[in-house]
Write a protein that binds this DNA or RNA. Sequence first.
DNA 1: CTCCAAACTTACTTATAAGTAAGTAACTTT
DNA 2: AAAGTTACTTACTTATAAGTAAGTTTGGAG
Lengths: 191, 191
Amino acid sequence: MSIPRTSTREHILKRATMLFQGRGYNGFSFKDISAPMGIRNAAIHYHFPTKSDLCSAVITRYRDLLKSETGDFMKHGGSAKSQLEAYLAFIRHEILDARCMCPLTNVAVAMDTLPDEVRAQATMLSHDLLAYLTRVMELGREQGEFQFNCAAEQKALSVKATLQGAGQLARLMGPQVVDQVIDQIRSDLGL
Amino acid sequence: MSIPRTSTREHILKRATMLFQGRGYNGFSFKDISAPMGIRNAAIHYHFPTKSDLCSAVITRYRDLLKSETGDFMKHGGSAKSQLEAYLAFIRHEILDARCMCPLTNVAVAMDTLPDEVRAQATMLSHDLLAYLTRVMELGREQGEFQFNCAAEQKALSVKATLQGAGQLARLMGPQVVDQVIDQIRSDLGL
DNA sequence: CTCCAAACTTACTTATAAGTAAGTAACTTT
DNA sequence: AAAGTTACTTACTTATAAGTAAGTTTGGAG
């Protein structure tokens, strides 16, 4: 080889992310990554010994992304409404443009067939995400931007659940579902 | 063989339903059905020539069940609140007791890897379900039981999305998630 | 009693999956 | 310049998947 040695690993991770979030753990194989890249399956095994390692890395990466995007808010607070809108825009983009789902969806579905490590990473992601959304809800209510009368944790859970469902229904019923559901979330928060 | 000839087909369908709703299309094989039943894979192929036929039958069955449970209400109306509660109880049972998801979840996740026939059945199920929930919302508002200020279709969509998400999050974060999310749905309807 | 069809089993094929071992080209260090 | 390390490839193994063809048992109809 000659051209882009260093970026192969990143390339693999990106394709694995698309496939994992787009089809689920059992819905893709190493070939789906290697063939379009013009490499061999063994090259993937070199960077990620097992499929478990590969998919764990996908989720870890997602967690890292989330952490870097929300770290500031988690520490110092800020506008809850703009945080929520940013997260909604991110999810909207993943569903409509990338045509993929939150990793939690894919893990939940295949739960019983997954390696422990993947499950463990997903559990951590779920807690990261819920902690973040809970903080957003909490501060949003304090700041008078959001209105709801239950625990912030419960509201965060409900919002996240609704967004998870939106991704699914969009695939079956069409893209317009996403904005309808997102509007309903806003409306239920008094926005 | 000697014992229960006639019920083999039904037995296969029941196991396939559990597996399909529990692990997704790509998360189980014929062996997962045949081995615990003490039969051979070929026996499954006798009743359902392909995996596509089998999974289509699973969804058709689910649609038939829904139709028979909701047919009366769809034709003559009735108490929307009791209809909603019945549906919530059904979903709650599937998640907590049967530990499985709505077929729509599993189809949506594996969408790009599924046979056309399975996708088609799932699309029909999604419209059946949404039509039903829309009717429930519509009548519930007319009867003064529910309160919301958007189209009944949109509210139904949002409720369904939230329930889909509840099933996923329950697997990752624990069973208590389900009742929290369901309570939030009630609350958002003014119940 | 015989024949026949329903409901299987045995035995097989073909395809694809994840994973491994050994070899190789190129850059890196000493 | 020699030796080692990185990043692969080739070639393979083992397991499992869906699906098929041909044979076998069993209960019932004529």
